[in-house]
């Protein structure tokens, strides 16, 4: 490493850093450890199984319930749809912001910012009424569409940073060679910004997966996502072990995504005024 800061590090500094990371890991992992622990524990009175005893019963119970297993598929369906929609809409927009000045670009920036920071609860009621008219209740399309509100701005931000890092000559040569815009996007631009697509997809996936306000109001009788399936487990006698087993399941896709984008997680996010 040619970085002078890494070269001058001392043993004492490394030790302090290690301690800081240890504290951080403890802070982040303890609630998760609690969750995993409870998920392997019998938490309600059952015949032949003491409360607090180690057991796989919670995980077995997930597969015994259609509502729980199908909710996992429902979530994956609308989140995938949302990521696809967001990327298709955000890529050309990010390209426009990266390469051109145009009348109203500052206003569009303002609009995107406003939509990203508008809390879902503010829009939940009219979105429900509007989507009911278009038959988008209980449908993955409805949730995928409304999650674009906060994901498109984020995706444009990330993709714009990555596109701006590509020299303009790439576009110019391609267009001189007679590429059409769609062909240029697919064969030249996309391969050049693959990590950016990965990072944008990661954040869209995550923010759609964890969102609950829209997901709840738009699934009345069917198509319940994993978050709502977990909600319905709360009742007079909540089987907290089952809740935690389901929570552990809900973390798997997100953790897999983190692993895939690990080397690019903190790139992009450049702000150019």
């Amino acid at each position: 490493m040619s970085n002078p800061v890494t070269r001058t590090r001392t043993g004492r500094g490394a030790l302090l850093r290690g301690l800081a990371y240890l504290a951080l890991a403890l802070f982040i992992l303890t609630p998760l450890a609690q969750t995993v622990m409870l998920s392997f524990m019998n938490t309600i009175p059952r015949e032949g199984l003491a409360e607090g005893e180690f057991s796989l019963i919670n995980y077995l119970n997930i597969f015994r319930s259609d509502a729980l297993t199908s909710s996992i598929l429902n979530s994956i369906l609308y989140v995938t749809l949302n990521v696809a929609l967001t990327l298709i809409a955000a890529l050309p927009a990010a390209y426009a912001f990266s390469r051109f000045q145009f009348v109203g670009d500052r206003h569009i920036f303002f609009l995107l910012l406003a939509f990203r920071i508008t809390p879902p609860v503010v829009l939940s009621l009219p979105v429900f009424i509007l989507f009911a008219k278009f038959n988008l209740i209980n449908s993955p399309v409805g949730i995928a569409l409304v999650h674009c509100l906060f994901n498109i701005p984020i995706a444009i931000w990330i993709l714009e940073s990555f596109i701006s890092a590509i020299p303009r000559e790439l576009d110019e040569t391609a267009f001189l060679d007679g590429y059409s815009v769609p062909r240029f996007f697919l064969t030249q631009l996309l391969p050049a910004i693959t990590p950016g697509i990965g990072v944008a997809a990661f954040f869209c996936f995550v923010f759609s997966w964890v969102e609950v306000v829209f997901a709840r109001i738009l699934t009345v009788t069917a198509g319940k996502p994993i978050t709502m399936a977990i909600n319905s487990l709360f009742g007079f006698q909540t089987d907290i072990g089952l809740v935690m087993a389901m929570t552990v399941f809900s973390l798997v896709p997100g953790l897999a995504m983190i692993y895939f984008v690990r080397n690019h997680l903190a790139k992009g996010f450049v702000i150019r005024m």
Binding site: L24, V206, W209, S250, P253, L255, A266
Partner: peptide
Amino acid sequence: VLMLLAVPLVVPWNM
């Protein structure tokens, strides 16, 4: 450490 930092982000908000 970056992977660790990202973990809480993937937990559903109601959980």
